[in-house]
Amino acid sequence: MSVLYGIAAAATALLLAAALTAALRAFALRTSLGVDRPGGRRAHTRPTPRLGGVAVALATGGVSAAGAVTGLAPLGSTTATLLLAAGAVALIGLLGDLRPVGARARIIVEAGAATVVVHGTQLGLVVGGLAVLWIVFVTNAHSLLDSSDGAMGTVGVVTALGLCVCAGAEGTGALAVVLGLLAASLTGFLMHNWHPARVFLGDCGSLFTGFLIACAALLVNVEHEASASLASLFALTVVAGADTVLVLVSRRRAGRGLLRGGQDHIAHRLRRLGLTVPGAAVVLGAAAALGTLTGVLLHRGTAGVSVVWWLGGAAAVAVGLLLRVPVYGGRRRVRAAEAPRSVDLVRG
């Protein structure tokens, strides 16, 4: 595969995602399908569709399939299986964007898709089972991270690009192509999702992105020494993981239901501290860049495993400090027109 093809494919995915996002937004507003209304769970003053993830999934999968059909970028069995499994996760996410879907049904589909991917890695029963649980956790952690304009897309672009580098170093060119296309598609989507967002990623896109990132992180590290692999997996997903831990601990301490949505994520707390919505997205992107760089260095053997303790310590301190920011009837209300949207752990 030539560099020229890679550039052309990425540009195509970016433009296709941008165009599809605009078309899906218009369709949703015209039909009222998958639209968040003002006064609901998201603090926005106008109806905003949440079907942007469909564009990301279609652009990533479509351009990948086109490359495989033309022979310019064959997928291979492992990457093709990954894309099909991610498509199944995207479908259950889309269903959740259109109508209520219970947590059990969503987790069953995610676990089934993860099992298909993990089965191809030849991991043992116990380790493979743990890998499936980890993929499901990371997938849903990215869904939770989709809590503010531009946040999930920015973190996804940064992480996908880092994993693209890792996949290239492993000699898995097909996986590197898919990850590059994912980053390009998310960039096209961000043209419509940057504050003030005109469309949201929704469960379809956030679950699709989280699943691809989790599985790709596993695939590029599966042949490496166990401690280095675990450290790299942690580093590559540290932002999404920290956000989930923050939310769960915060709700448990406040006596709130763990599955109850709320404006208590990292981006919301950064807004309470005075950052703008774009500023919160940039901070999350920078944190993801630090974690991704650490993961890439660990993957390549350039950094020792001990470096992950510094990263983990920094994440723990950040979570501890952010827990002190009041979010349940706090000190001041964020203006509705500028407030980041809230996301439920499970709709319905």
Rank of each mutant, 00 (worst) to 15 (best):
S229H: 11
N193F: 06
L123Q: 08
H142F: 06
R260Y: 12
L323G: 00
G67W: 08
A167E: 02
T244Q: 10
V305E: 14
A114H: 12
A318K: 13
A10V: 00
P74V: 15
A216R: 14
L29A: 11
Y328H: 15
S229L: 10
E170A: 14
P326Q: 08
A80M: 13
V307Q: 01
G120L: 07
A19P: 06
V158W: 04
R271S: 09
A11I: 00
R25A: 10
R324Q: 13
E225L: 14
A88P: 14
L233F: 12
L248W: 15
C164M: 00
L230N: 05
L75M: 14
V118L: 08
F234G: 04
L207Y: 00
L186S: 09
G320E: 03
S227C: 09
L83H: 05
G329F: 12
F234M: 07
L15R: 01
R269P: 15
V109T: 11
G168N: 01
L246I: 02
V177P: 01
A13I: 04
R333W: 15
G320R: 04
A318D: 15
V307R: 02
P100M: 09
G330D: 04
L273K: 00
L72W: 15
H224V: 15
V239S: 00
L248H: 07
V247K: 02
G87S: 11
A176G: 08
V283L: 08
A85Q: 06
F234C: 02
H44E: 01
G274Q: 09
T154Y: 00
V238S: 02
V117N: 11
T276H: 02
G129Y: 10
V334G: 11
P49R: 07
L275C: 13
I108H: 14
L24C: 07
I135V: 03
T244M: 14
A22V: 10
L163S: 13
L246N: 03
A86W: 10
V63K: 00
T81H: 15
A214I: 04
G279H: 13
L293D: 10
L190V: 06
G162A: 06
R333C: 15
V89G: 04
T70G: 15
P100S: 09
T294V: 04
